[in-house]
């Protein structure tokens, strides 16, 4: 597999606090890559650099072999990197299709005037959800009526709508119950099956070993280990993180 995202020697400081001290991250196209580490390890900062929220003080970032430097999330999005934050970034009282197409609505011409193409957006939303194996059928239902797993599916569909090749999921199962967590893990597998690269930021080791192909462990702003998850148990992964911290 070719590398779709490569970060080398990323450095980022906030005043006196050095959040990243030369972090590396290599993500292969089409894989689910977990980013693990204790609190303060630098996961969030690294994700902010990759998603264009922050700029690195030093280091390089390349996407699909081309060096990139993002001035904002919109540039990261244009480069095919979408981030799904823990709060999902949805408008709860707006409908499923409105959320999926938020900011990139489809239009048609009516007597020469551009108007929203509601039918096309509903059909499109259904298509995206079907791609994820979702059984949601009423695209005009407000998102607030959906379960946590279904909301995650809507957020993922928005990323697909943006034609994202890399989807960063920040703690996607943090506030979910067992059944909904399983739904989200299924969604991640579906994304992989559709050829989408997923970067999974998670504290839940069970989730990581269940869906990730590879894992990068961060500690103190540096990447201390990058390895395949084959044969790795949740306990073993937790021990790796703890050992690195002790070291």
């Amino acid at each position: 597999m070719t590398d779709i995202l490569v970060v080398r020697g990323a450095v980022k400081s906030y005043g006196a606090v050095q959040a990243l001290r030369g972090a590396d991250l290599t993500v292969a196209r089409g894989e689910v890559h977990a980013l693990c580490g204790d609190n303060g390890a630098g996961k969030s900062t690294l994700i902010k650099l990759v998603s264009g929220v922050e700029s690195p003080d030093d280091g390089t970032l390349s996407v699909a072999g081309r060096e990139a430097r993002f001035a904002g999330p919109h540039e990261a999005l244009a480069a095919g990197i979408a981030t799904i934050h823990q709060d999902l970034g949805l408008a709860p009282r707006m409908t499923i299709y409105q959320n999926i197409y938020m900011g990139s609505e489809l239009e048609k011409r009516l007597l020469g005037i551009p108007v929203l193409d509601r039918a096309a957006m509903i059909a499109g939303a259904q298509g995206f959800l079907k791609q994820l194996g979702s059984t949601l059928d009423d695209m005009t239902a407000p998102v607030e009526n959906l379960s946590g797993g279904q909301r995650q599916a809507v957020a993922i569909c928005r990323a697909l709508r943006w034609k994202a090749e890399i989807i960063i999921m920040d703690e996607p199962t943090a506030a979910l119950g067992v059944r909904e967590t399983q739904q989200v893990l299924k969604l991640i597998r579906m994304l992989k099956a559709n050829g989408v690269t997923v970067i999974l930021v998670s504290h839940n080791m069970n989730d990581v070993v269940a869906v990730a192909d590879r894992v990068t462990i961060l500690q103190g702003g540096r990447s201390v280990q990058a390895r395949a998850t084959d044969g790795l148990s949740a306990d073993a992964l937790a021990r790796l993180i703890m050992d690195e911290r002790a070291a």
Partner: peptide
């Protein structure tokens, strides 16, 4: 409805 979400979108 959701200013932050809209901004991110």
């Amino acid at each position: 409805e959701a200013q932050e979400a809209a901004h991110r979108a």
